[in-house]
Amino acid sequence: MIEIKQLSKIYSKQKGDRKQALTDVSLTLPRGEIVGLFGENGAGKTTLMKCMLGLLRYEGQITLDGEPITTKNIEKLSFATSEHSFFANLTAQDHEGFYGQHFPKFRKKRFHSLMEFFDLPMKKPLRTFSTGQKNQFEVVLALCQGADYILMDEPFAGNDVFNREDFYKVLLGILEPEETVLLSTHLIEEVADFIGRAVLLRQGQIVADVSTLDLEDAGKDLMTFIKETYDYRGDRIRRVLTQLNEEG
């Protein structure tokens, strides 16, 4: 289980400017869940994941199965990001070797199945891949590292809808009961049927943490719930346009 307690993160900018990216975030991720992490741009989704991975300094506490996250247990976490964390000059085959060398639990069989499923070339440098293929490969690596907790940050920015649909189905099919996925995305409606829990961040704070079953029981769909939580005002566009027209 990953436990995050009172996590805060402040970015210090130039000229002494400080931006509070996360404020007292507390969250628990038990094993075997697919959790959606939602929020507007700048809400702190990426920052939260980077803190979990130790890529950023933070205040607060993050533990993995009761232990702080260090080099001893970091292999239990994998990460797929739209920024891509693979080596652009290496081939998929080279990555297989690299991951095999550094991550003892690397899932070779799963790797080959997914490469075949997504029809990705094994012997071409990744820099020659299309954006969609790069995203797929990034996700393949995260799923095959042998991690118990798979963090995905906007993994499909640039993929077409069929591609994404395929991925969600594969994800549900291949994940083992012990594997946990934390998926940050703006594609709320697409993932609504695949996640078991939704965590909503707003301005660096968790504003909702709800299971999709509870939502179903309450007769609400995820999108409506998120809009309500965010106090989304659908009429504001119409009002702005009317205002502009009046001024014109």
Partner: peptide, 8 residues
Amino acid sequence: YLMRRLPD
């Protein structure tokens, strides 16, 4: 990101 989260 990958290098910084290697076990080694």
